[in-house]
Amino acid sequence: MNKTFTLKNVFVEGTASVVGPSEGAGPLGDLFDVILPDDIYGESSFEKAERKMLLESLSLCLKKYNYRPEDFDLILAGDLLNQLISANFAVRDLNIPFAGVFGACSTFNLSIGLGSLLVEAGYVDRVIAGACSHHQTAERTFRFPTELGVQRKATATWTMSGAGSVILSRQGLVKVKEITFGRVVDYGLKDTNNLGAVMAPAAFDTLKRHLQNLGKKPEDYDLIATGDLGSVGQIMLKHLLGDASLDAGNLTDCGLLVYASTQDKHAGASGCAASACVFSSYFYPLLCQGQLKNVLLLATGALFAQITAQQKDSIPAVAHAIAFEKVE
């Protein structure tokens, strides 16, 4: 029950990432594969631009590593929009079987987790796992029109534009070692402008179970990277870890790495793309080069829709943990 899966034979073979212009202007800007010149990317709507980013990151997985579509058994991908339109529409030109995955902003880890189990079980040889988000489409889906003169709350995160994909197979430099899927946790918070605080208990719950199941301590990882808790969520997670006497020294947050403090994005980046792009273009290369030995990626998601928020329901959250390790 509540098991942590320990895998022997699954590796990240390669990664690809695409980000929007303001993410490209951030501190990690040089590392991403493609930076869009503008948010609309030559399309007629932001929704089309978002799916084009995902398609581009998926295609890059083929192009960068010289694969053809028939080399892949499955794509697992998702996004934040209703009916997963970005992922569903993006894959229609790829000719690879597809399973849509939704975990809100934790989608990237959910895709990797499910894909890795399929590879480990031997049902598939090579899969792509990916996720994407886009600032303007997320604002439309969850908040107000972007041109409305709304003052953002200090606790609010900024949904980033980007898409990240990884190839999972039986060869590679970085091993997918441990997977703990999250319970859906709801502490009764309702503030959609403070999703970091909403998701922190989910991150804590999954992290605690992951460590307990394996008999490990936080220090056993070079880095524990949450997905998009942002500055406020990180403070809350540190409180929870402190109460459980767990060390938070190697804690970081993908969302806090994306923007410079001068970019006025308040509590940091959020969205599926936060963990997807930061892992694909920052952690993965560091693992390959051996600068990091292992990383625990703890992607978090707030599982609400505009309708539940308008009906004043509390916000459930989830976090999925995946440990990556450099192969010796």
Binding site: G188, A197, S231, M236, H239
Partner: peptide, 16 residues
């Protein structure tokens, strides 16, 4: 436990 957490979140609100 969650009630305590909600209070803590309110306390940790960044001061506007």
């Amino acid at each position: 436990q969650s009630k305590r957490y909600v209070r803590l979140v309110e306390k940790e609100q960044p001061k506007v």
